[in-house]
Amino acid sequence: MCPGQGAYLPGALRHLRYVPAVAEVLTTVDTHAPAHGSLRVPVGRLLTEEDAPAPEELLRSDPLGFDLATYAAVVASATVLLGLTRHRVDAVLGHSVGDLAALTVAGAVTVRQGVQLLRIRDRLLRTAALPAAGILATDTTAGQAADLIRACGTPQVRIAARNAPAQVVLAGPDAQLAHVRRALEDSGHRVTPLTSRTAFHHPLLDEVHRSFRSLLRAQPLARPVLPVHTTAGRWATTPAHLRTTAAAHLTEPMELHRTLLTLRRAGFTTFIDSGPRALLSGLVRAGLPGCATAAPLRTPVAADRILRRLNAVAPPRRPGPGPW
């Protein structure tokens, strides 16, 4: 599983900087990234130095650097896990902008292409006339969130993700989102603002989505070596599906919980979180009790410790035939 927002952790790969696969990813990203942002910190340094800027600081001063570091962290982490695991990996799943990392891990796009696509997306976001907007996570059900949005009279706040039975992400313009946040907190709910440059998974980004999809048509795609599943609940089996997946995080709501249930019915019982922290493995535990999960890079550690964490996961049962 390839996480998106929240996967950047300063120095996350500091114990792996000399692993050839990690060094190759970081070098490729820095080679093809522009000299951008006021910090001008190479992605390699962001992910290998413990005193690198915190997520909020990096996003504020260098949004593209934040995006590239998030992408590189997940791709490099997944590459390490694929090299270490003693079990066959049957599929890859992206979450939000983690879909682009998932496509890279699956072999549909190269790291260089991933950097180019993030640069294109950054330009589109910077030139669009977008209002100040963001996203926040709540401990409500989807029904509770919808009722509260109506009661608050905040029609531009939308459900951006249904991650677990009681974990919903909301997105919208800052003023309306703040109103909903106050109402949630007054009702005793937990609310966590997420580090994000705008309201992803929201119609505010319709124009950016159309432009990005148009530019994606010119991108050559390879046949994935791993099946790609999306949080829209389907396999991405054609070039058109893969391009749709790369742009989905801009406007499409995520249905992670429904997707996990679909995968479970297909026979998948073991889910490995390939990002720093343990963002997605926690959601799997909340929504699929009884399945095996692991987040081997939840804290920065060397390859031997990652291997021990992987080996602690129960051997998976074989899923049914994939889409190939």
Rank of each mutant, 00 (worst) to 15 (best):
E24H: 15
V75P: 01
H179K: 15
G172P: 06
R14L: 10
T299H: 12
R217G: 13
L100A: 04
M254A: 15
H15M: 05
L205D: 09
L170T: 02
A54S: 14
A132Q: 07
R182A: 14
L100Y: 04
R150D: 07
E57H: 07
L84R: 08
D147W: 08
A294Y: 01
L307F: 11
T299Y: 12
D30W: 01
Q167C: 14
A69E: 02
V92E: 00
A69K: 03
L226E: 01
A132T: 05
L204W: 07
L250P: 10
L215S: 12
F66S: 10
L46D: 00
V97G: 12
F271G: 00
A278S: 13
L93H: 04
H36Q: 11
R309W: 04
A314C: 13
T27R: 14
L47I: 04
V180S: 08
L263W: 03
D99C: 11
L124E: 04
V41M: 11
P316Y: 00
G143I: 02
R119G: 02
M1N: 04
A286I: 00
T70L: 12
F66P: 00
R210Q: 08
F200R: 05
P34T: 00
L279C: 01
V313I: 09
F268A: 08
A312L: 11
D30M: 05
P289I: 00
A142E: 14
V169F: 12
A52S: 09
A142S: 05
T110D: 06
A76V: 11
Q144K: 10
A183W: 05
A108H: 05
G134R: 08
P316C: 05
L47S: 05
P55L: 10
A73V: 12
L16P: 11
V115P: 07
S77P: 06
H241A: 15
T192R: 12
E56I: 03
G65S: 04
A102N: 01
L136A: 14
A292T: 15
D186E: 15
R298Q: 09
A166S: 13
A76K: 02
S187I: 07
T140C: 13
R88G: 14
R298L: 04
R45C: 03
G83S: 08
R123C: 09
L263N: 02
F271I: 01
M1C: 09
T198A: 06
R86A: 14
L194Y: 03
A129K: 10
S96E: 06
A292P: 09
T195K: 14
P173R: 11
E50S: 15
L310N: 05
H229C: 13
G6T: 06
L26S: 09
E24M: 08
A151H: 07
R60W: 05
R265L: 06
E255Y: 07
R119F: 00
P55Q: 13
T269D: 15
A69F: 02
T262K: 10
H189W: 05
V19S: 13
R217I: 06
D51C: 13
L103P: 02
G233W: 03
G37H: 00
L39R: 13
L125I: 04
V228S: 10
E50Q: 12
D51M: 11
A222I: 00
H179I: 14
L283R: 06
T154R: 01
A69V: 03
A166F: 03
L100V: 08
A54M: 13
D99S: 09
H202V: 04
L242W: 08
P315V: 04
A52M: 01
P227R: 10
S274N: 05
T110F: 09
T270K: 06
A7M: 00
S38C: 12
